[in-house]
Amino acid sequence: MSDDTTNEETMSEQQSAEAFEVEENLEDAAGHRSYSQGTLIRRRFFRHRGAMVALTVLTLIVLMAFTSAGIGPIPGWWPKNFIDLYPNTGGPEPTLRLWPFRIGEHPFGKNTIGKDYFALVMEGTRKSVIIAFVVGIIATTIGTIIGAAAGYFRGIIESLLMRATDLVIIIPLLVLASVLGRMSNGNNVLLLALVLGVVVWTGMARLVRGEVLSLREREFVHAARAIGTSHWRIIFRHILPNAIGTIVVNATLLIASAILLETALSFLGFGVQSPQTSLGLLISDYQSALTTRPWLFWWPGVFILAIALCVNFIGDGLRDAFDPRQQMD
């Protein structure tokens, strides 16, 4: 090593020693911008390609379904509705062509009695999506509160709540849902969603309980207790925000399974009743048309598949965003 480089070396060594002195500076610790955990998670989520594609597709489907018939006083862009018959406008086949692109009179064709099938499928999508999201919100709320209370308080409260959860779990979901669905009168979609929400929260409750059990032993919870913080403040301010990853990911998966549950119920005839419609009901109505008018079966099927897949992909992206260690090597 020549003298020059030795000099340089000692210079840089001195500099690094000075850098050591100022290490307690904040800018040194983490760049210049402040990132909350939420920001970091959002960044990771927006970088997840699959989830972003799914989010776009789902948004498009929901937008299409809700704007086509109009919302409240705003008229929709699709001239036909799902109740009237259109017997005199050509054959029943779908008029949608991708190349050259053409929507035509009845893009998804007509059903057996001449209703516009596009309008029917859109109506079915609206109902299915509403049910799915309402079920998701209700089940998440119930499951989170029950799971958090059971996990945090332990003892007799935990025993009572978790045995109640077990009680709901041991009854076959489809039987319970169909009985309750029948009682709720299939014409009221929101009531049906409420009823479904009341039976599917069990998985969420168990997961949240498990998460809370480990979080309640963390030191920041002890620190909060030592300060004199009340129980519910600890649960809502210290524990649940740290369990948000588990909760959000499971809520999305819950939504996906709610769509399928509604479909199954309607298919069995216990869910949405005519003249209301849903994707499941459409499939059930036209299951025998698979050979003669296959589009009556395929279109609602494709929409169910697309929505369930998208929601699952979003859940996947959220999980990776909340727990980046899983995807790293």
């Binding site: 955990q37 963390r218 030191e219 920041f220 620190a223 909060a224 004199g228 913080t229």
Partner: peptide, 26 residues
């Protein structure tokens, strides 16, 4: 009270200002 591991004894979801003012709020 001060605990051993500062990484574990601070709620990761709260900014420093909120952490310090927590006792005052409670």
């Amino acid at each position: 009270v001060i605990f051993q591991d500062p990484a574990a004894s601070l709620n990761p979801r709260l900014p420093v200002g909120d952490v310090i003012s927590e006792p005052l709020e409670v």
